[in-house]
């Protein structure tokens, strides 16, 4: 562990939880998709969530900004409870950026307009200032020269980097990634992961659903493994990969690492 990482880990230890799941349960009709989730994430922590499809990892992540509603238990984000209170939801969504598997850029707006939309309308930032900020983040994801194009004119990797920049433009305290590289061609995965690694190094609180185990090993503070709606195991990456406690985890790791 480098010095900065050490310092960050200590900082993270001292901080209290920014996201807290207490006994969270969720059903889709009869289907019990999240079962007794108890988990907390500290400020600055990088969490990677993995597991087989249908295990509830996306659903759990999407509960954090209430794209999904849970029916039982409590979720606290930044000390605010996620319930039906619209004010709470809007307040939290301002501070939580999200990146989706299918990018979900707005195809009728240019890249620049995609980035400035939320700052202008939600944060009430003056247009000029919002554009400057947008260009700053586009530089960071290395596509400033595409600012006036439309999403349909960009490659998948470029679109996903725009989506990350769009999330950052709201200057969020937490970034959620829902399988950000799953819809990309192999050649483009790296450019997106590079941006995410850079973001992690700057100390952003990140919750990332992904199957990129390399990313998990280098970046994550903790890896969470889910199956059938439950958290099976959560551990530091080194321990998680070298010494999985649970046989279900072992099986999952052998499936994805041995080919």
């Amino acid at each position: 562990m480098t010095d900065t990482n050490m310092a960050r880990a200590q900082l993270a230890q001292g901080e209290e939880a920014i996201i807290e799941f207490n006994d969270v349960n969720k059903w889709y009709g009869d289907f019990h998709v999240l079962k007794n989730i108890n988990f907390s994430i500290k400020k600055g922590e990088r969490i990677v969530v993995c597991g087989p499809s249908g295990s509830g990892k996306s659903t759990m992540t999407r509960c954090i900004n209430r794209l999904e509603e849970h029916q039982k238990g409590t979720i606290l984000v930044d000390g605010v409870e996620m319930n039906n209170n619209l004010k709470n939801i809007e307040a939290i969504r301002k501070d939580v950026g999200m990146v989706f598997q299918h990018f979900n850029l707005f195809p009728h707006l240019t890249i620049l307009e995609n980035l400035t939309l939320a700052p202008i309308w939600v944060r009430k930032t003056p247009k000029k200032q919002a554009e400057e900020m947008a260009m700053h983040y586009l530089e960071r994801v290395k596509i400033a020269n595409q600012a006036l194009k439309y999403p349909g004119q960009l490659s998948g990797g470029q679109q996903q980097r725009v989506a990350i920049a769009r999330g950052l433009c709201m200057q969020p305290r937490i970034m959620l990634f829902d399988e950000p590289t799953s819809a990309l061609d192999p050649e483009m995965i790296k450019e997106v992961l590079d941006v995410m690694v850079q973001l992690a190094e700057e100390g952003m609180t990140m919750v990332c659903v992904t199957h990129e185990m390399g990313f998990a090993k280098t970046v994550a503070d903790r890896v969470v493994f889910m199956d059938a709606g439950e958290i099976v195991e959560a551990n530091e990456p080194h321990e998680f990969f070298e010494n999985p406690q649970h046989d279900r985890t072992q099986m999952f790791l052998s499936q994805i690492l041995n080919h």
């Binding site: 969504r93 989706f100 979900n104 939309l117 939600v122």
Partner: peptide
């Protein structure tokens, strides 16, 4: 996804 992206950014 368009509805979700708009919701997620707090619109």
């Amino acid at each position: 996804g368009q509805y979700e992206a708009a919701d997620a950014m707090g619109l």
